[in-house]
Amino acid sequence: MADDAAPPPIQRKIIHVDMDAFYASVEQRDDPDLRGRPVAVGGSRARGVVAAASYEARVFGVRSAMPSATAMRRCPDLVFVKPRFEVYRAVSLQIRAIFADYTDLIEPLSLDEAYLDVTDDRLGRGTARAIAEEIRARIRADTGLTASAGVSYNKFIAKLASDQNKPDGLCVIPPHKGAAFVAGLPVKRFHGVGPVTAQKMERLGIVTGADLRDRPLAFLQAHFGSYADYLYRAARGVDDRPVRSNRPSKSIGAERTFDTNLTDRDALHAQLSHIADAAWARVAKSGAQGRTVTLKLRRADFHTITRARSLNQPVRDRAAFLAIGGELLDAQLPVAEGIRLLGLTLSGILRDGDRDAETEPRQASLPL
């Protein structure tokens, strides 16, 4: 009798490459006076938001998207450097050219990180580990910068692994170790679990991956709704998402909920400026361009309003982004009961490195 059983699914070999403190490292590479010093790219001593921080600055708790004033309080010797996005994009293209020697399945997440599916061992390197090591060595030789990499059987674990031995590190998690690796991590490290969700989980007694794994799906659905299925699978090291070289475009933005409801126009515009700083830092980091600016406004009674404006060409810079947002805001004012939340996003996104086609892995013989 013929065996009609379906063949087992191909075990993917995924590498997540993440440049180490990319913007700040480029600045330290190009200016020897900055080497060994705490550096913040973006913002200034007076205002703005940190777009990136060197490892010397991170020791003091300085992080991206942090207001400059907060960063200064944490690190008084912090050196602020104006971002040079054209340089970062050029370096990013160098790095992606290296990736392209090993696979066509490249999914950029931003200028400084990407997923690679190397299931098809195009150059015959023998293992995914060997490919990751070679890529890291070539990045160092060609750009003078370091990269960390995670190697595993799916995207979720590969991304976690790339952060495991930073900076300038490599971490390989084979399939038989995936569930145990995830179980031992704090859930706040899981991709998609932000500070608010992490705090909610902690209140529910969920601190580690093991804690999350021990909660039944019904419990997670009751507390996290549609997000529950992702959490349930992630806690078990399961992620079936393919590396997509033509990732669908998404919006990029930021929002802020205020401690007290705001009615004053000047105060609202000041807050919108801070939100635009945070949002545009993410836009710049992603290497994205977009044509549509959307304002989100939530009144004190929790009624939410969104208003958008689309241009015939991409929004050129942060000033234009904020100007459009300000006009959309003014069109809604005054709001007598006050505003408790504002948000500003860019959509209609085109990203550097997007490709037109996606192909499937062709063999399953490459070990991790």
Rank of each mutant, 00 (worst) to 15 (best):
M1P: 14
A6H: 14
P7C: 09
Q11D: 13
H16A: 08
S25C: 11
D31S: 14
G36P: 07
R37N: 09
A40L: 03
A46N: 13
A51D: 05
E56V: 08
G61A: 10
G61M: 08
R63H: 13
P67E: 08
S68H: 02
F85G: 06
R96K: 12
D104F: 05
I106A: 04
S110I: 02
D112T: 03
G124M: 04
A128I: 01
R129W: 00
A130S: 09
A132T: 06
I139S: 02
A141C: 04
K155I: 06
L170I: 07
I173T: 07
P174A: 06
K177G: 02
A180T: 14
A183K: 04
R189L: 12
P195M: 13
A198V: 03
Q199N: 13
K200G: 05
R203L: 13
V207R: 10
V207M: 02
A210P: 06
D211Q: 04
R215Q: 12
Q221A: 09
G225P: 10
G237V: 01
P242F: 01
V243M: 05
N246F: 06
I252D: 00
R256A: 11
D259T: 15
N261E: 15
D266S: 14
A267G: 10
L268R: 07
A284K: 01
K285I: 07
A288D: 07
A288K: 02
L297P: 00
A300N: 14
F302R: 09
R309K: 15
Q313A: 15
A320Q: 15
L322G: 03
I324A: 01
L329I: 10
V335H: 03
A336S: 15
G343E: 04
G348C: 02
D354G: 07
D356P: 04
E358V: 12
E358W: 03
T359R: 11
